[in-house]
Design a binder for these strands. Structure first.
Length: 651
RNA sequence: GGUCAUGUAGCUCAGCCUGGCCAGAGCGAAGGUUUUGUAAACCUUAGGUCGUGGGUCCAAAUCCCACCAUGACCUCCA
């Protein structure tokens, strides 16, 4: 429910015409004038019921008290929401508000529902004269687990995590109990299983990033200097850029960025499939009025991209979850099939984040998210599978060039009772991670998951962003009516794991860029990308025109060995071409001149990571690169082999 | 979404405070010279509605207002 209260000198309104079919009948059509009152403009939204009416009346009473007014006008005003309840329901709730408020307030008026009304209003000029509230159903602790229309919410740290739409109640004034349940208790969990409340924990010098994560999560003040370096780098390295002709947070990816994304996508997909993931594809848009969607879609209209087509209201998906759940619901499942792992890499998921939240590749409105759901028979199987996926996530993250030991900080979140019953399991995760872990604990389970973890990258501004994540979801199996037949012949709802072994692809690139920037800033070496993700793996530089023939010969050989090789054939000095090669962070540069013409066997390679030149044979170089890029996907150059033929991307 | 900062050539930036000469530089581009050996060869030329719109003024890149975009912070993050 949306409630806008206006402390007004007067209001005059006059019903003009019925606006909708279900408008109230038999109302007075004469002009009404009221003075010195509170006008409560109200829009009833989906999922509101009479309990919200009660909350609204409490809210209104409080406000009347504050502004010291005794007269109330309840004024149905649909324009406050894009998420309106059905008119038949709305009118009942409006009437309930009128009824309940009349019990304790003297002077209550109500404007008719469903009518176009002309009105004049003068709102008082004091700071409290306008007051807007969003009210939602209050949860009671006992109905939480029993109703099919469950309310829970995810206060996940970050949109990088995989989450499914649930009900987030926005500040309900009287829902103190719910807030108490939501209160987070923070700890540091050691690899040995010791758990210390965060205020008693002494961070050592090696744990600066963990401390940054804790501060970030607990929303303490943080000192910030400068801009996030990856924004400049993503342009300078011709990876990605803003697209002014699109919506904010929807980026363009230049050839090198597109290649890098393709490679990461292929790699993650390959690893998930090796783990047993079954790749599927689900639609990117859904009908918001479809029964399976309706219950939660309307909870977050502000965060969705909505499209009106043929009288339908479609919304763009913000996760892969529901597409896969809807599919799994239609599978015939036996316990023998479990765990079943459904996988999709969404290109794209859409979240209409508020404009102030968008930053470079860190947070976007359109992003690619690998998402593997493990459908499990019971908690035992879920835990067993969870550990396998933990290993998978560690392995994938490491292969992407982000070290678990130095680049990532881990957070685990769970409800107290789950921890009490599964201490060994939780400790196992911390022990495997090998370093202290941030813990967020709630008194009771409030969300669809009973435990989740994420790896967070801490960037140069000390901001934490979630990459890999996994969750144990104990609610959506039931909510989506996914069923399997167990050994005893009974139908049961599975437990569902939600894993992204890498996190959003764009965010992986963000982390790689921030990591490179960190190296530049610290002065400990030269920034670079993992070799398998670089557009050019070997750059051949011709000294003079006559050397191009040999360059072409070598390039052909290397390209045959699946090594991305290009030729700087521009009419520039050798020094200039070397500099350009280094500015592109190319790992291997070969200068080809007279010496090489005389003896093709002996080449001199300029090795960026080693920071020096050395003699190699072509075969040695091929072997070295093949070893470094072993088990990684290969794609050909995504730009012409000759630099003279490349457009310059001056982002 | 709110507060603050920034927006000048394809890119990076100077000029703005203290309004007034044709708005500058480097890189890049185009044409030419050079055929070069491990992080920037040389010469010439072209490129600018000074984010957009309004206002003040004899005169606005410069002062004022609004809007847009980007960034930081607040908030938020299904």
């Amino acid at each position: 429910m949306r409630l806008l209260q206006l402390h007004s000198d007067f209001i005059e309104y006059e019903p003009i015409a019925k606006e909708i079919k279900y408008a109230e009948e038999n109302i007075s059509k004469s002009k009404v004038r009221l003075e010195d009152l509170v006008v409560a403009l109200i829009a009833i939204e989906n999922d509101d019921d009479e309990s919200v009416a009660k909350i609204a009346v409490d809210e209104i009473k409080k406000y009347l008290n504050i502004v010291k007014s005794k007269t109330l006008l309840i004024y149905p005003y649909a324009h406050l929401s894009s998420n309106l309840a059905a008119p038949t329901i709305a009118v009942e709730i409006i009437k309930a508000i009128e009824r309940i408020s009349k019990e304790s307030l003297g002077d209550v008026h109500r404007a008719p529902f469903g009518w176009t009304k002309a009105f004049d209003i003068r709102v008082k000029g004091h700071p409290l004269a306008e007051n807007a509230k969003v009210l939602t159903k209050q949860k009671s602790s006992f109905d939480k687990k029993s109703t099919s229309d469950t309310h829970n919410e995810d206060v996940s740290t970050d949109d990088g995590s995989i989450s499914i739409a649930t009900n987030r109640s926005e500040k309900v004034s009287s829902a103190l109990k719910a807030e108490e349940k939501l209160q987070s208790f923070w700890y540091i969990l050691q690899p040995d299983g010791n758990m210390t409340p965060i205020k008693d924990y002494k961070f050592n010098n090696q744990e600066k990033n963990l401390q940054a994560l804790a501060n970030y999560e607990m929303a303490k003040k943080r000192a910030i200097d400068g801009h996030p370096p990856h924004v400049k780098l993503m342009k300078k390295m011709s990876i990605a850029d803003y697209e002014p002709a699109s919506d904010v947070g929807n980026m363009r990816y230049y050839p090198k960025g597109r290649l890098m994304k393709s490679l990461i996508e292929q790699y993650v997909t390959k690893r998930v499939m090796e783990y047993g993931g079954i790749e599927v594809e689900t639609p990117i848009m859904y009908d918001s009025k479809h029964p399976s969607m309706e219950s939660y879609f309307n909870r977050f209209p502000a965060r969705q991209y909505n499209i009106a087509v043929d009288g339908k209201q479609l919304f763009l998906r913000f996760a892969a979850c529901f597409g896969q759940f809807l599919m799994a619901k239609d599978f015939q499942l036996s316990y023998k099939h479990l765990p079943l792992k459904l996988y999709e890499l969404t290109r794209y998921s859409f979240r209409r984040e508020k404009s102030g939240e968008l930053v470079g590749l860190r947070r976007l409105r359109a992003f690619s998210m690998p998402d593997c759901h493990g459908i499990c028979r019971d908690m035992n199987q879920a835990k067993e599978e969870f550990l396998k996926r933990f290993e998978l996530s560690i392995s994938v993250t490491t292969a992407l060039g982000l070290s678990i030991e130095t680049d990532m900080e881990m957070a685990i979140r769970f409800a107290e009772d789950f921890y009490d019953e599964n201490k060994d399991f939780v400790n196992q995760l911390a022990s495997r991670f090998g370093r202290p872990v941030l813990v967020e604990m709630w008194k009771e389970r409030f969300f669809y998951f009973t435990l989740k973890w994420e790896f967070n990258y801490i960037d140069n501004l000390n901001k934490a962003s979630a990459l890999s994540t996994d969750q144990i979801d104990v609610e959506n199996g039931k909510r989506y009516q996914i069923e399997f037949v167990d050994e005893d012949g009974n139908k049961k709802n599975p437990i569902i794991l939600h894993n992204s072994p890498s996190g959003a692809i764009e965010r992986v690139i963000y982390a790689l860029l921030e990591k490179a920037a960190k190296i530049s800033i610290s002065g400990n070496g030269l920034p670079s990308f993992p070799l398998w993700l670089t557009h050019t793996q070997i750059r051949l530089i011709s000294v003079a025109r006559q050397h191009l023939v040999l360059c072409e010969k070598i390039a052909k050989e290397l390209l045959n060995k699946q090594i991305r090789t290009d030729i700087d054939d521009r009419d520039e000095s050798v020094g200039k071409k070397i500099r350009d090669s280094e500015m592109e962070w190319i790992h291997y540069t070969l200068v080809i001149g007279d010496k090489e013409m005389q003896n093709e066997k002996n080449l001199v390679v300029r090795d960026r990571s080693a920071g020096k030149q050395r003699e190699v044979s072509l075969q040695e170089l091929v072997d070295e690169i093949n070893l470094k890029t072993r088990d990684k996907p290969y794609l050909p150059l995504n730009l012409p082999m000759y630099l003279s033929q490349r457009p310059q991307i001056m982002a």
